[in-house]
Every structure is written in structure tokens, then in C-alpha cells.
Design a protein around this nucleic acid. Structure first.
Length: 144
RNA sequence: GAAGCUGGCCAGACAGUCGCUGCCAUCCCUCGUGGGUGGGAGAGGAAAGUCCGGGCUCCGCAGAGCAGGAUGCCGGCUAACGGCCGGACGCCGCGAGGCGAUGGAAAGUGCCACAGAAAACAUACCGCCUAAGUCCGGCUCGCCGGAUUUGCCGCCCGCAAGGGCGGCAAGUCCCCCAAGUAGAGCAGAUGCGCCAGUGGCAACGCUGGUGGCGGGCUCGGCGAGCCGGGCCGGUAAGGGUGAAAAGGUGCGAAGCGGCGCAAGCCGCUUGGGGGCUUUCGGCGAGGGUGACCGUCAGGUCAGCCGAAGCCAAAUGUCACCGUAAGAGCGCACCGCGCUCCUGGCAACAGGGGCGGCAGGGUAAACCCCAUCCGGAGCAAGACCAAGUAGGGGAACGACAGUGCUGCUCGCGCUGUUCCCGGGUAGGUCGCUCGAGCGUGCGGGCAACCGUACGCCUAGAGGAAUGACUGUCCACGACAGAACCCGGCUUAUCGGCCAGCUUUUUUC
């Protein structure tokens, strides 16, 4: 099970978690937020665990997404790219970039949600459009 | 030009838009894991495998022995190395060059496919030899009795008692014999015998019959001799195999074989052990000399002489063995071993001399030898905040457990008592200025070293380099930092540069 990513979960303390919320104001001044900086990320193991435990799930060929309302003005993204799905480090990085780029352009769809995207199958470079379309479809289901 | 060899370098480029992570400057706020603006930086030659070596950090430092691991031609470089450089040697390549864990195989153990008698030294096997022994087979020759006791039967002699002869059965013995245990059967009318007839005075015949004896033939038993084979025994040379079975090659001479009319040419061989022995030599009971010691019996040491006998033995000689046959040599070179000289720091190379040519390979098989090796690793480790009883020090110390890489000894810890006050992935540091990079100069064949000047070149922490658009080209491989260096190995699209080699003037 996803060694590289599962490392974090255990530790995060509950007390330190709820700091992020306020940051959203700065970006809120802009019409469309395109940034995926600190406030838009899931950082702690407890946050991941909460999404897995309480969120909804949609599954496709390449991805499985978990999401849950977070009572914040912005959406937050977490990635799980297991070594089992993609053994080569280079292509694992490629998959993360692909996901981040796509989510960044669709930030509005996940506003107010914590989202975890989990890779299920290696994405070959020539299959990228397929994977991209699938992720867009899955993201579309978040708000329903 | 083409084909190659070696070394080095690059790792799509440019522009725009939207994004990501640090850094610097500045600004804003709800003051922190926040945000805005500007500037500048942002993966690799392998970042990989984690295979070596080191730095750094903590732990241990009480060691000793055994075990274990690594390395393995020589010299140098280096912080260190299993790396690099230079050299030596071996192999490969026409060559530039490439490859090589390259100490020891007379310390021991093991292994050596197939083939082969045999794969390691001692045999066994084939082959060869074979006196005696033993077994089997063949051929030839010989033998298949005698004496005696008892019983029975037959015949003869005698009036009878009884005696004689022969046969059979059982038993005993062996003077003699190479053998006597075992004989059985068949045929034939001729040698003997017997019967009948007949001739003759007789000796002696003739004719016919008979199958008793001898002889013949067949089978059988036994013995001897010879031959052959097996076992046992001996065995030096030889044994188409194989990567390898104990040196090789050349010339001359000799011999044999083949080819050729011949001259001549070609091929093969020139081995093996053994007996005897002169001289020289060794051992040798003992004798004698000198020195020393001594309890005066002798002892020790060093020379000398030395009977019988034994050993060794070049050479000589003698036959013998093997080979299709015969000859039963000589010289030289290479290799090998020992030794000396020269050159080299050394590995090693060159040369000279001597030699009874005696000993397969494998050590990335165990092993032996030499050298080196404390453990764990940045989740090391340090600090801070918040927070529960985990930790540290000292003293004592029997058992048990446990730690010190493994084992043994040994030492420590867990244990008890007393004292101290804070473990952990939440954060900060460690975290990138370093055995650093570039250029020049100097030293060195080189690896590398020294020096001057210049430069700062990722530091993330769910983890940063991407997406889209356009243009161009040789159409883009392998692949993503996680404490840091030096190496090795592996993966890899294409291309560039330098030096060199071969072929050579057109492939």
C-alpha cells in the first residue's frame, strides 16, 4: 500500500490543524483563483483519514476520488500516487503534475470540498487525454 | 573519403500565457503552515542499482582467542577504496588498441562432463609372460588286478571222511602297479581253446561247428603324457581417446616402410627395464692416534686404518623385452629446474653456466599465505513548544534474560536502593561553502599535487521544473535530487570535437 504516500498519516495532531481557513481571503479578492498554494493543500494525515472515512467516492479506470465538504471557503487537494500503480519515479511525478494542473483549472468545482485523488493505473504518455477526460468527468460529479 | 580505436563534450532550441518551490527586497492583514508585487535561482550523466570507499552524527571503546568478511603482479595517486594512473607479464587483434581477482597446485582435501584401460599415481583393465599349483576341454598311450577269510553253487577225484578246481556274494589286505573304483555291449569264423567228423604210426593236419580266451570295434571308469583355455602369479617398454595422460623442435647419421626407371622424395623409428662387474665411493665388527673429563673402571669429541659382508654405481659388458622391421646414435635450439651476472625502487627482463627432464589442470572449489576491517545510520543526531511517567547517574549484585557483528572467556545492562528532572514524525536546526566549480601558471609521462584570481551553483518535506500555443531542427533516449562527497556497475535517442590506426587514391 502506497508506501511513499502513506508515510504521513499517523502523526498530525488535532490541535494544530485548523489554521488554514483564513488565508482564503487574499485569493478571494481575485475573480478566479488559479493558484494551488499552501491553503489549497491537504497536509496532515488526519485530514486525509477524515476524507477517506467520511467522504464520498467515485471510481474510474485511472483514478479514484474521495471528497467531503470542509466548511471552508476554498477547496483543498490531496494526492495519493502509490508506487504499486506506477513503479517509475519519473512517471509518478508526471501523473501528479497532470492531476494538479487539471484540478487547478477546475478549482471552482471543488470549492468547499476536501478532495483526494488516488491513482489506480499507470498513465502512459499517449493515454494522457483519456486520463484527463476521465478526471474531468469525475470532478463534475463532485457537486451533485 | 571509407572502415575502425581511444578520450572528451552536449542531452532539443527560442518566444508568449497560466502555474509550482526556495532565496533577496518590499508591502498588506485576521500575525502565520498567510498573501501581493519586483528581482534572481531551480534535477542528472547517470539523480538509478545501493556494489565499494570516505566525511558527518550517535553508540561502544576491556580486552583476548577462535570464527567471519574483503582484497590479491609491481610502483604510485588519494581522506579512503575493491577506484584511478603508470609499468610488468599473459592472451586477442594486420594495427590504433582491447581483455585479464595475474600470490601459493612438491601443505592437505576435493573435483575434472564426453571419450578413454586409466583424469592422478597407486593400482586395476587390455596386452605380454608364466615355474609350480588348481579347474575344465581335447588328443595319444596304458590299466580295468592280486592275495586271503567265510558262505553258497557247479565240476572233478575218492568207497567214504575229505580234497582239488572254477564261479558268485560279503569282508580284510596291498609285496607289486602310474592306475586296479568298473566294467558293459556289438560284430566277425581267423589266432588259441573246445566240440563233431576225418587223414596220418606219430608229430601234425583237413573239414564243419561254437563265441570260452586273446584280439577288433563302441560306450564307460581310472592313470600318465602332451596340447589348449580359465583361475592364481609376474609385468619395464605398448594401449586409435581426450582440452590435458610426463617435454617439444630442427639438422646430420643409421634403420625400416612407401613412391619412383633412376637420381631421389615422403613417412615412421632410434625405446625399456634387468643381471654381472673394474676403479672411485658409502656403511661396516674392530684397531689405532690426539685432546678433554674421570670416582682411574672408563667416557666424550675429532682425525686415521679397516676384515667379512652389504649398499650405491657413471661407464663397460651380457643377454632379454617391445616393435612391421631394423638401428640400438650425434649436435643444436626452445621450454623446464637450479645457479650466477647485468639492468630496473619493484613486478620483471636480458645473458652465462650446470642438469639425473623429475611432478596434468582447477584456488571467482575448500584451503594456505599476506594485508585490511568496531557498530548503526540524517527516521543519524541536537534544540524548542505543549503535554501523560518513559529516561539518566551512583552504590550493591546470586540466578535468569539481554547487549558488546558471530562463538568462548570477560565486561556491561535489565533487578534493588538513593538521587536527577523530561521521551516522541508538531516545529526549528542538521541542510548545503564543499576532499566545491572555472580559468591561468608551476611540478609530474600520468593519476594527481601546489598556487593565484574569479564564482556561489536545488535544498523540497504529500515532496517543487509542468501545461497550452507558435516557430525551427538532426524530431528528442534512459530517466527525477532527499545529508554530502570519491568511485564502480547498469540503462540510454541522436550528435559534436580531438588524437590515432588500417586501406589507400577510389573500394
Amino acid at each position: 500500500m502506497a508506501f511513499s504516500s502513506a508515510r504521513a498519516p499517523r502523526a498530525a495532531k488535532p490541535s494544530s490543524a485548523p489554521v488554514g481557513p483564513r488565508a482564503a481571503r487574499g485569493s478571494a479578492s481575485k475573480a478566479l483563483p488559479h493558484s494551488l498554494r499552501g491553503a489549497h493543500r491537504l497536509r496532515y494525515a488526519e485530514e486525509f483519514a477524515a476524507v477517506f472515512a467520511q467522504g464520498s467516492t467515485r471510481t474510474g479506470v485511472y483514478f479514484r476520488i474521495h471528497f467531503r465538504p470542509n466548511k471552508l471557503p476554498q477547496g483543498r487537494l490531496g494526492l495519493v500516487v502509490p508506487k504499486r500503480a506506477e513503479p517509475a519515479a519519473t512517471r509518478r511525478n508526471y501523473a501528479k503534475r497532470l492531476i494538479r494542473e487539471l484540478v487547478r483549472s477546475r478549482l471552482r468545482d471543488i470549492q468547499g470540498f476536501d478532495l483526494v485523488v488516488r491513482l489506480r493505473k499507470a498513465i502512459l504518455r499517449e493515454d494522457a487525454p483519456l486520463a484527463r477526460a476521465e478526471l474531468e468527468r469525475l470532478l463534475g460529479e463532485v457537486r451533485q
